[in-house]
């Protein structure tokens, strides 16, 4: 499995080199994409200085945590998002005849993947950590990678669920787009601004709040977090991520059996 994964990255790098111009364009897109999100935050908080006690500095850090988890997800698991396309054009059948777990086979499909967004995210996270005045101690340095990994797994789980739905409804582009948008919107602001029902949903059903809100509450030493949970629950995000991914994988297996039953 490791050998396959190594080859996957070898080909990714070769492809990026083959298409240098495209690679630069996509890197520019990553800058615009995140840049416009941060600019929106800045414009809003330029007019309204406080959002439930969070100012622009806090929110810039909140965005940094999400951005890093998201970039890590896109770097490692980009292929999952292409499943609907593979199902539609029949390429998915080719994956089914590989002697690999199908989800793994999807993940190791080489593409034009390069960790440009991840590098950007790490730089941005570093800057906002300083800008937001987060205390950088041993505990922070130890916890941050786990928190980011947790966020990555949460996003992977969501994408696996969307990909599985493609086994039933071949064209799920809109759903995929919406889920990504919802994830962005829900992770952009402190969840305290939402009604209780939405907060519960973001904590226990689709746990986006564990991608950045709860960890940021902890790292920023906010006195309280939404739903009255102690801020330290933010450190549970890897556990939440693994659990959610387990559920998503079970759903994937169920969908795969169905796919093999009826084709598409």
């Amino acid at each position: 499995m490791l050998a396959v994964y190594g080859q996957h990255w070898r080909i990714n790098v070769l492809t990026a080199l083959e298409y240098r111009e495209n690679f630069l364009l996509w890197a520019a897109f990553a800058v615009v994409y995140h840049g416009s999100a941060i600019a929106t935050l800045w414009v809003v908080l330029h007019t309204f200085p406080s959002m439930n006690g969070w100012d622009f500095r806090d929110m810039a850090f909140l965005y940094g945590l999400w951005m890093t988890a998201h970039a890590l997800h896109d770097t490692l698991f980009f292929g999952v998002g292409n499943v609907p396309e593979y199902v539609r054009d029949g390429e998915f059948d080719r994956l089914l005849i590989r002697p690999l777990d199908t989800l793994f086979a999807v993940i190791v499909i080489p593409g034009q993947i390069f960790p440009d967004e991840l590098i950007l995210a790490l730089v941005y996270l570093g800057i906002t950590t300083w800008y937001a005045g987060v205390r950088v101690d041993a505990a922070f340095v130890f916890c941050v990678p786990f928190v980011i990994l947790g966020g990555t797994l949460i996003e992977l789980a969501i994408n696996v669920i969307v990909a599985t739905i493609a086994f039933w409804f071949v064209r799920v582009d809109a759903l995929r787009w919406i889920v990504l948008q919802l994830e962005q919107e829900f992770t952009r602001y402190p969840i305290g601004i939402y009604t209780r029902g939405v907060r519960l949903f973001l904590t226990f059903v689709f746990p986006f709040a564990f991608m950045n809100y709860f960890p940021a509450t902890y790292f920023l030493h906010k006195p309280e977090s939404a739903l009255g949970l102690p801020p330290a629950v933010g450190l549970l995000s890897p556990v939440i991520g693994l659990t959610f991914l387990g559920v998503a994988y079970a759903f994937w297996r169920f969908g795969l059996d169905r796919y093999k039953g009826v084709g598409h």
Binding site: F169, V172, D173, A174, I178, L182, E185
Partner: peptide
């Protein structure tokens, strides 16, 4: 693509609510 249609209307409502 009816699934797309329903998801776009659903997402519209959700986004307004948000």
């Amino acid at each position: 693509y009816r699934f797309d249609v329903f998801t776009s209307i659903g997402s519209f409502a959700l986004r307004i609510y948000l």
